[in-house]
């Protein structure tokens, strides 16, 4: 931290000022002129919260993607299809059993197994041929997309959250002051906050697993130097299967999450594949903290974009990506290897 300030004094100043402005914007009450310029504070806060929770969803999708890439150098273009499959599986399970948490378990297991099968039967045979793996995964995504269209049709599906998670909660952030003097607080859907909380927990668990356990040690060693790890007698193929299954399972869970607070339909697979691509390019390929940072930036940018310049909201995320590429081709947090 101190080293960063010493090395980039101007940038540090800009960052500190930006953070200060941001904090003031969140906590202070907005005077009339600012409301006239930027719209209501409620809109701003909603965009911020939506952005952060959308970022949480993006993180769930992109962390599996980046994990698989980091270890196996496999750009899994079928990751979006795994997301969509998770959403459909979660929907079916939630419909049958009526028990929402179970759909997470089911989606994780089913999609994880699909991922393991993909790695075992297909990608294992073409290890090191990264372009071919990508092409094969594109083929798989086309086949999956059509099979899912066949099975579930072109309708929108929404997974209903249980009672105790539906409805809004009051957050102690003042959005406006009524003329009578009473403060108006921000109301926000509980389910989104729960999802945000859950993905933070997932992120921390992943970090702990990677940095504090033996299996995490193997994964990190594999990212560093695959051949050397194999030479020490580790059965790297099992680690690959495990990581691929876990990454796919995360995509499946993300599908349930996406189906709960948005909806699932054909075409979402491509949307989330692109989102995870952009997130990992911005954040840095193969790095979990990078995926978190990238997901946060992209999610917030997308939501603010759709509120303040609705026409070009989607383009904004790509502009961010191009800007990051132009200045830091390795992404904001590169794995440095």
């Amino acid at each position: 931290m101190n080293r960063f300030i010493a090395r980039h004094p101007v940038w540090s100043l800009i960052i500190i000022i930006a953070v200060a402005i941001f904090l003031v914007a969140v906590f202070a009450q907005w005077p009339k002129d600012i409301v006239a310029m930027f719209g209501k504070k409620k809109v701003f806060l909603h965009a911020l919260f939506n952005g952060v929770t959308l970022g949480a969803l993006y993180f769930l999708v992109a962390s599996g993607f980046t994990l698989i890439f980091g270890l196996m150098k496999n750009v899994n273009m079928a990751h979006g299809s795994l997301y969509l499959l998770g959403g459909y599986v979660g929907y079916e399970v939630a419909e049958y059993t009526g028990w929402w948490p179970l759909s997470f378990v089911a989606a994780f297991l089913v999609v994880g197994v699909v991922g393991v099968l993909m790695q075992y039967f297909i990608f294992r045979r073409m290890e090191g041929e990264d372009l071919r793996q990508t092409l094969v995964s594109i083929g798989i995504s086309i086949v999956f997309a059509d099979l899912m269209l066949w099975a579930w049709g072109g309708d929108f599906y929404q997974i209903l959250a249980p009672e105790w998670l539906s409805g809004p909660v009051v957050i102690p952030l003042v959005t406006a002051v009524k003329s009578s003097g009473t403060l108006v607080y921000l109301k926000y859907p509980v389910v989104r906050l729960a999802i945000l909380f859950a993905s933070i927990v997932v992120g921390i668990l992943m970090w702990l697993t990677l940095n504090r356990t033996r299996i995490g040690m193997l994964v990190r060693a594999g990212v560093d130097d695959r051949e050397m790890l194999t030479a020490t007698g580790v059965r790297i193929q099992r680690v690959f299967l495990l990581v691929f299954g876990f990454g796919a399972g995360l995509a499946g869970i993300a599908g349930v999450v996406g189906g709960t607070f948005q909806s699932i339909a054909p075409g979402e697979d491509m949307r989330f594949l692109l989102a995870s691509l952009v997130v990992v390019i911005v954040g840095g390929m193969g790095s979990i903290p990078g995926a978190a940072l990238g997901a946060l930036i992209i999610g917030v940018a997308e939501q603010f974009g759709s509120v303040y310049f609705p026409t070009y909201a989607v383009v904004l995320t790509f502009l961010i990506m191009v800007a990051v590429l132009a200045f830091k081709p390795q992404g904001l947090i590169s794995s440095g290897r």
């Binding site: 150098k73 750009v75 990264d130 372009l131 990508t134 692109l274 691509l277 952009v278 390019i281 390929m285 026409t311 070009y312 989607v314 383009v315 790509f318 502009l319 990506m321 191009v322 590429l325 132009a326 081709p329």
Partner: peptide, 27 residues
Amino acid sequence: IAVRTEGIYTIMITLAIAAAFFYFTRQ
């Protein structure tokens, strides 16, 4: 933009550019 990256990254970046163009022309 794309040559700043290599190999497999190029696919992703050009795909993202293609998507950006698609959304831009649509809006």
